[in-house]
């Protein structure tokens, strides 16, 4: 039938076209980067990177942490990316992703403190983000609630039904918060804290940034989320205060690495080197809460939050590999504890 012949021709034509496009993709000078960094930061960084690396065409696909991980694993039979950039370490350390990385000692990576890079150099982390509470001051005022300063404060019954947190099973942010509490306070005290907070918890959201968005819109008083979203909300003009919990400030490092299946390792390596450069470090100060590159200025966000210059004083040395390995048990215990 005519119509079907048309379809066949179309498929064939598309195939040929894609094939040609595909061929052109594997030219030198082009890399594909998968990143979980925020959209606007990526735009900024790339603008500078393009000037420093004029011969490389950098194509970035930005996905949220969870989606990114799933994508990389799904593509494991035939990886499409050259570099993973700014991806939660807890996820990076997962065997399914780790196994796809090729160790590469980026320029300057030895200067990073040991906990910010993999032992075998398969990844390194230049930046990080912190868990933070988004507190809606307008709601606090109208409901006459005190300003919380820590996780323990959140167990105060006066906050009943006004707190939201991400679900650690579906959100990396939620997980880092829970992991920080458990590792910091210890097993017993940690789970007790979570249990008590659960009484006040209105709901557990599936996405990490949702609690902050809910809090800033006035749906709830307090949302446990990320520093980035909190800062953004303040910037945009919402009646929000960012509070880094004075006990157990959870954080996550953003790791980058080279994919073993990359078809353009040379340029990929150049890019990875750039992400550790001083030039990049300067850019990071504008957006990131944590910058691991030694000698870099403290981030604006950290200063705004009242954190000291040397963050390692406040940041509990989270064992990320342990975090990653223990995830299934922690999640099981979490659903048992928070019977919602």
């Amino acid at each position: 039938m005519r119509a079907f012949n048309m379809q066949n021709v179309k498929i064939l034509a598309t195939g040929i076209f894609m094939g040609l496009a595909f061929c052109s993709q594997v030219q030198a000078g082009e890399i594909t980067v998968y990143s979980a960094l925020e959209e606007d930061e990526i735009a900024d960084y790339l603008a500078v990177a393009k000037k420093s690396l004029p011969d490389i065409e950098i194509n970035v696909l930005r996905l949220s942490t969870g989606d990114l991980g799933a994508r990389v694993i799904a593509e494991s039979a035939n990886p499409q990316a050259d570099v993973i950039w700014g991806f939660a370490v807890t996820n990076m350390a997962d065997k399914k992703i780790l196994s796809q990385l090729e160790p590469y000692k980026a320029v300057n990576s030895e200067s990073l403190p040991a906990q910010y890079r993999a032992e075998d150099d398969s990844w390194f982390a230049a930046t990080g983000y912190m868990g933070a509470l988004c507190v809606n001051t307008a709601v606090l005022e109208s409901k006459k609630l005190p300003m919380p300063k820590s996780w323990s404060d959140l167990t105060n019954p006066v906050y009943k039904g006004e707190v939201v947190m991400p679900n650690p099973a579906s959100s990396g942010t939620g997980y880092l918060q829970v992991a920080a509490i458990i590792q910091g306070a210890g097993e017993e005290a940690g789970w007790k804290l979570i249990d008590e907070m659960d009484d006040n918890m209105a709901q557990y959201t599936s996405s990490g940034s949702k609690p902050c968005k809910m809090a800033r819109a006035g749906e709830y008083a307090i949302g446990a989320s990320l520093s980035f979203v909190a800062m953004k909300s303040v910037e945009m003009g919402y009646p929000v205060s960012m509070v880094i919990p004075s006990d157990w400030a959870g954080y996550e490092l953003e790791a980058s690495g080279l994919l073993a299946g990359s078809k353009n390792k040379e340029d990929a390596k150049k890019f990875l080197d750039w992400t550790l450069s001083q030039e990049a470090a300067e850019l990071y100060t504008k957006y990131k809460a944590i910058i691991t590159i030694p000698g870099s200025k403290p981030s604006e966000m950290a200063t705004a939050a009242g954190l000291p210059e040397n963050l390692s004083e406040v940041l509990y040395p989270v064992d990320f590999a342990k975090s990653a390995k223990e995830r299934p048990e922690i999640l099981k215990k979490w659903s048992a504890t928070t019977t919602k």
Binding site: G66, D67, G69, A70, I73, A74, N91, D94, K96, I97, N167, P168, A169, S170, S171, G172, Y175, A202, Q203, Y204, T205, S206, S207, R327, P328, L331, K340
Partner: peptide, 26 residues
């Protein structure tokens, strides 16, 4: 819909999301 407005009402579809996206457990 379940993710945005479901609150604590757990359904199967969100379970999939948890497993695949939250825990990379295909």
């Amino acid at each position: 819909n379940a993710a945005v407005i479901g609150g604590n009402y757990k359904v199967l579809a969100t379970e999939i999301y948890s497993q695949v996206v939250g825990q990379m457990n295909f």
